[in-house]
Design a protein around this nucleic acid. Structure first.
Length: 354
DNA sequence: ACAATTTGACCCTA
DNA sequence: TAGGGTCAAATTGT
């Protein structure tokens, strides 16, 4: 049944998720067996979170395939080309990025996966941080959209030139709620060095990524402990910030819910503080995830600051500046939330060994 | 000097 | 043909 509906790529994705879950579990095991300054409680929580995300991801894939046999993408998506976005994006006008002529077969740019994420940016929050999805983007255009109050920003992967990565995204501030930004992604990344890529495995800090072995560089013991404490605290703060900024709002049409799960690994203190952090829901055509802060107080005083140019912020340097650990969690979450990534996570960028 | 962003013009599609 | 998407020269930032 599942097998019937599931293509090789989906199966590979599933295997990848499960394998990752197993590997992460081993890492967690290593934490228990070799207690070291780096085996902080937070580090274990992170691993636990990743494991859960991984397994939920796998389960979600099964749900999708069971439910529909297809991962649903935006209208107009060519169902036969859903497995992987071909490098079919032949640019008009200027130089062709690739000479691949697949586009001629009707498999044009509309055949690329497309999904939307809605992000709420509380006032006073650094936009770059909130919108940082782990990839480097370069803005290539901005346009006023009919009947939209705010202009739409157009971004492409900075690795387009060097690696021919065709991923793009559009960012548009919501009319109704200026604190909300709609980010529409198109095409998946085929570049190999997204800093905190959607591929969770590549987002792991090096010492957690290598199998079972935690490498702590030799340092004077006191310094070691101080640093460990410092990092632990930093981690904790970042995680706290991260969790605070997260709460998933159910997409209006709950009828389309395909997967939902809870995250019991969230530290209980945070759970108490931010009870809405409970479940993810997926809608049918476009997956919408609203990152929502439990802060009712923000209003648009600060919005004017965000407005210009649909915040040329999001991109390039920001991801590399982001603390890798807190960003890891975001990266993993993005991965979970993006159906197109489920669909194609066995692609080259997704699980490239490094 | 190089990289990133801005912006008006152009291209493509419905 | 209108409107969205992209190009590329000009501008700004580092």
């Amino acid at each position: 049944m599942v097998e019937d509906n599931m293509g090789e790529l989906e199966r590979n994705s599933l295997v990848h998720e499960l394998t990752q879950g197993r590997d992460l579990t081993r890492q967690l095991q290593a934490h228990f067996h070799h207690a070291s300054p780096s085996s902080s409680h937070e580090a274990q929580e992170r691993l636990l979170l990743r494991i859960l995300l991984s397994y939920n991801s796998a389960l979600s894939m099964l749900s999708w395939n069971d439910a529909s046999g297809l991962l649903r993408l935006s209208p107009g998506k060519n169902p036969t080309s859903r497995d992987f976005p071909e490098p079919d994006y032949k640019e008009h006008g200027g130089t062709d990025i690739d000479n691949n002529s697949i586009g001629d077969s009707g498999n044009n740019r509309k055949g690329m996966p497309r999904w939307t994420k809605r992000v709420r940016i509380p006032h006073g929050t650094a936009i770059e941080g909130q919108l940082d999805d782990g990839h480097s983007w370069r803005k290539y255009g901005q346009k006023d959209i009919l009947r939209a109050k705010h202009p739409r920003g157009y971004y492409r992967c900075t690795n387009r030139g060097s690696q021919g990565c065709l991923a793009t995204k559009q960012v548009q501030r919501s009319d109704e709620d200026p604190a909300i930004f709609e980010i529409t992604y198109r095409g998946r990344h085929t570049c190999s060095h997204a800093s905190i890529s959607i591929d969770p495995s590549s987002s792991l800090p090096e010492n957690e990524n290598s199998n079972d072995v935690l490498i702590v560089e030799a340092q004077p013991q006191q310094q070691q402990h101080q640093q460990a404490n410092l990092e632990q605290r930093k981690d904790h703060d970042e995680l706290l910030d991260f969790y605070k900024s997260l709460a998933i709002i159910t997409e209006g049409s709950s009828k389309n819910t395909l997967a939902a799960f809870s995250l019991p690994s969230i530290p209980s203190e945070l759970h108490q503080l931010y009870p809405p952090f409970d479940a993810f829901n997926f809608s049918e055509d476009v997956t919408t995830c609203e990152l929502f802060r439990e802060n009712q107080n923000f209003h648009s005083q600060e919005d004017s600051k965000l407005d210009p140019a649909v915040f040329a912020a999001s991109s390039v340097a920001t991801s590399s500046r982001t603390n890798s650990r807190a960003a890891d969690a975001r990266g993993s979450l993005d991965y979970i939330l993006d159906p197109a990534e489920f669909n194609t996570s066995s692609g080259n960028a997704g699980i490239s060994s490094k």
